[in-house]
Design a protein around this nucleic acid. Sequence first.
RNA 1: GCGGAUGUGGCGGAAUUGGUAGACGCACUGGAUUUAGGUUCCAGCGCCGCAAGGCGUGGAGGUUCGAGUCCUCUCAUCCGCACCA
Length: 902
Amino acid sequence: MATRYDPQAAEQKWREAWDAAQLFKTKSPQEAPGAPKAFVLEMFPYPSGRLHMGHVRNYAMGDVVARHRRAKGYNVLHPMGWDAFGMPAENAAMERGVHPGKWTYQNIAAMKAQFLKLGLSLDWSREFATCDPEYYGAQQALFLKMMDKGLVYRKASKVNWDPVDNTVLANEQVIDGRGWRSGAQVEQRELTQWFFRITHYAEDLLEEVQKLERWPDKVRTMQANWIGKSRGATFRWPVVGPVPAGFDSGIEVFTTRPDTLFGASFVALAPDHPVTRALAETRPEVKAFIAEATRIGTTEEAIEKAPKLGVDLGLRVKHPFDPSWTIPVWSANFVLSTYGTGAIFGSPAGDQRDLDFARKYDLPVQPVVLPPGVSPADHAITTEAYTGPGTIYNSGFLDGMTTDDAIEAAVEKLESLGLGSATTTYRLRDWGVSRQRYWGCPIPVIHCEACGVVPVPEDQLPVRLPDDVAFDKPGNPLERHPAWKHVDCPACGKPARRETDTLDTFVDSSWYYARFASVNDMEERAYWLPVDQYVGGVEHAVLHLLYARFFARAMRDVGELDLPSGEPFAGLFTQGMVTHETYREVIRREVTLVEWDAPADGAAVQEARSLGEALQKPIGAGVQLSFENEEVPFGTIVSMGSWISPDQIQEVRAAPIKKAVLTGPIEKMSKSKKNTVDPDAIIAQFGADVARWFVLSDSPPERDVEWTQAGVEGASRFAQRLWTVFDGLPETATDAADAAEALALRKASHKAAAAIDKAINEFRFNSAIASIHEWVTVLKKAEANSGLLAERREGASMLARCLVPFMPHLAESCWERLGEAGFASAAPWPEAEPALLVDDTVTMAVQVNGKRRGEITLAKSDSSEAAEAAAMALPDVASFIAGKAVKKTIVVPGRIVNIVVA
RNA sequence: GCGGAUGUGGCGGAAUUGGUAGACGCACUGGAUUUAGGUUCCAGCGCCGCAAGGCGUGGAGGUUCGAGUCCUCUCAUCCGCACCA
């Protein structure tokens, strides 16, 4: 009788053995001559203190790739570290009085202990945290080099200010007008900030992202949209009469539609355009408009089609193609100061926003583009602008041209008039990196009244964070520290002030992959980079992944990275989330609602209404909600209690007061919804292998997977069943093997190994797991045949090696049970023998008029004629074609026979 | 509004050059083993139908001997961006 596999004992044993053998230590290029390299990387975690199932899935996927590559003969780099600077540590400091550094390193220790239990094939010798002074010191050196190259600069600008986190946010970090972490409504403030010149690489970042074939299309598209390239023209509208100083040469606008210039009826400036602001000094109505526009811009909750607002600035400009024609200049709230020149011309017939604005303020609407197949008399613009292509009319020298030709002709004309030229504009803006926080990388500069901004000399790096800081007041502790910021100027020696802003933590994660490849050896970096396979969440599609691409270029250009393409991640995989059902406690009220509109206790009705909608379905199904086994009739007043965790369900159901459990939607695991499952508890109960197996098995890796208790238990049962394949192997064969059966079993094993190999290469882990299931079933069936021992042993040996990427500990136990030497984790991949992958017979479907009526099995060498004859001879086929004329027969060798009858 | 995806049994999903739709897993049903629960094993499991057979990949058309796969239109859901001139 087979023994049971004990994951707890086995997993610890193997982890210790791997560790003792230094199995996953990275080899230098010299130690692995001739082997191709593979840098496998998962996005490193923020040390929050606890591992969650999302981590397990992310790192399990990376580990499948790393272990598979290792078995395939690659020299593998698979490191791990910590993205350790950030707000939560400061929040902990404020709430609990613990130093952010202490809190962070404690969390790292706790999480690392959890990580180790997962059995990941990581090289921990390269571990670092971004808050280690060695790391952020190197980052400071990099910052100074970039400053030297002009890739870093300082300017006063409007910034996104998060009033909860008390810091600045980059544009990428503002989502729907709210801070990405705090969720607070972001305000605009004018501050002097440090910027990375990411726009310097806008064109390259856009062009190269299209070439990253091993990135998901979705991410590539998102980045391309974010960079937002537009070709158009920038040109001046000469101003009539006196204008604010500096604008006497005219108002500059950007457009992508110069072909519609003859339809222009106004020029509009952004509310914070310098001209608008200058006029506001003397004109109260302009000032009032700016205030109103700013108010709407920042407080509008759901930015639902904010109304078009404007004010006539009282200026007029001359049309570039006809100086005798002048049009008014307005300021409008829909014009963005940050895009293009912050000014537009309105051509209402060809742009919906311009049309809305023109209708509201009664400005002319002159159609200039005729849609194909429409006559001028039939074309009228009322409330819908026509933005499509067509023929230009009402437009002087552009008349009769197509829109495309007219764009070119108009630009040429503008150029010849010396008013402007063709330009390309990007939506992407420079990356503001100043943060008014303590727990981040100090910006290594000193401000001197005499010398200005002075870089900290290299031999004084790293600029370390002071340890003695207080978090009792909001704001930046570095600013308030009594001594830290007071230093002497490195240039003139006079008293000066240290920069107290720290760098955005996204800077830390923009180059960590290079540090993993080598601390500072450029040759070693060149060997490992780019990362061959990067694995992480899609939420970083524009933030981290764009910044990292920028940094790789910047590092290359300052000589820190020999990476010609500038692309740090050759392959990217974005994995789905781990979800779980949600549960909510429901408390019954001793009232029954007669009608929904009954004016009962207002709040209760409100709750009952919202719940009533949710309950209609479950109650229809008859089982979802019951109090003490009594079904709740629709219309009963209940109140929604709090979210409860899966293990509280029994407790709530058994509660003496009338409570029930409402099963809610399946959502991403989160603390607030209490639908998390603790990896530690799962590992303690089932083992790490089972946890890994389950998060990879059910869904394709890029989609969400729903965690279910039944699913984990199924995975655990399968692990035991797989173990019996090995544990049940007898030492000696008792019968002679049947040659045909032996060959069939060998073929099944070799085909399975090949299928698993292919599926892993294609990131179809769920398919690989399905193949392992089938394989185990085949091997279990073979147990009844006592003559097949050699073939069973061969299959088992291959299976153990194919199992390594998924359930590495169990694979080792199986390997050991087989009596094989060394570690399964170090064994080469079981390559299938090509001869065993081909069959000499084929099964073909037989169709009559495209409907399947039977199947035939033939030798592979049989001719099409033979196949046709065999098909015709099938009784089921014969009955369908009896008495009918066969019009033709299609034979696709090895696939199908289709008989077409009248 | 723009952009990107995705729609297949009760559920997660296979089918990746146009060629046997539903692999594999979960759930469920029946049976065997077990004092019982659990485990394990065997069998069944798209829908309608007693059967013969018919119908089936969101919907409607089309191309083809043959369509989940290709084309046109359409509906739904999810994600991203959102006054970007």
